[in-house]
């Protein structure tokens, strides 16, 4: 099973209905990503990047087309199975960090473990290394409003990794960060990819950020642009 690509998307379409208007967010996307790849998805706002991620992450369903994640067809999944997918297989890092404001950093991470059903076990030693790599071990007892944006995002990355997802989906992870913190988070993602073999898909519209990926695909008007531009 591990022979084929980890993610395989064929002719993916998504149509929203906003009132009486149909919005074609995705118009036949074809994309594949291998295990251990760090893929940057670049495109202007409204190009369908986020919709693509939401479908990949099982947050919403496609209108038509096929999405295979680790050999499983997302189109055939019901709500419960997509919930299961979010628990075990994919996880998100968001532009706005999206930590629960009332919980400490440690509890935010513990909550993700609890939701995935691993809450009762001790975190494995591997995760300790991840925390070290992230450089937030000393900030774990603080609540999000006591952490800087960079720290919050690193906690969010830790939360995303705690259940060892097959795929990390990062949606504009540096969009709310200053340059210094952006570089730190991006280097972190590259480290995670290189050292731990973490498969990462990252949305960005910053070309410098995109360059951290092994490969860059461009989206426009709900489609993947065929040609690779040269930076």
């Amino acid at each position: 099973m591990s022979e084929g690509p980890l993610i395989e998307i064929r002719n993916l379409r998504k149509i929203y209905r906003a009132g009486k208007v149909e919005v074609h967010a995705l118009r036949g996307v074809d994309l594949a990503a291998a295990r251990g790849e760090f893929l940057s998805v670049v495109g202007p706002s409204g190009s369908g990047k986020s919709t693509l991620f939401h479908i990949l992450g099982g947050l919403t369903s496609a209108t038509s087309g096929q999405v295979l994640v680790a050999g499983k067809d997302l189109a055939a999944m019901g709500d419960a199975q997509r919930t299961e997918l979010r628990k075990k297989t994919v996880s998100f890092v968001f532009q706005r960090f999206n930590l629960l404001p009332n919980l400490t950093a440690a509890d935010n991470i513990a909550l993700a473990r609890y939701i995935s059903g691993n809450g009762s076990q001790e975190p494995d030693p591997q995760f300790g290394k991840t925390l070290e790599l992230l450089g937030i071990a000393a900030r774990m007892q603080h609540k999000p409003n006591e952490l800087s944006g960079g720290e919050q995002q690193r906690v969010a990355v830790a939360r995303a990794l705690v259940n060892h997802p097959a795929i990390l989906l990062a949606d504009e992870p540096t969009g709310n960060l200053d340059t210094q913190n952006s570089v730190a988070v991006l280097e972190l993602l590259r480290d995670l990819n290189r050292r731990l073999g973490q498969t990462i898909l990252m949305i960005t519209h910053n070309s410098e950020a995109a360059a951290y990926g092994d490969r860059i695909v461009h989206m426009r008007d709900g489609q993947i642009e065929p040609s690779l531009p040269i930076w």
Binding site: L59, A80, T83, K87, S91, F92, N98, I115, S116
Partner: peptide, 16 residues
């Protein structure tokens, strides 16, 4: 609302 969305993105079921 957002927090509920976050929990769902982490895989929280409706029942949870």
């Amino acid at each position: 609302t957002r927090e509920i969305g976050i929990m769902k993105s982490l895989g929280a079921s409706r029942w949870m």
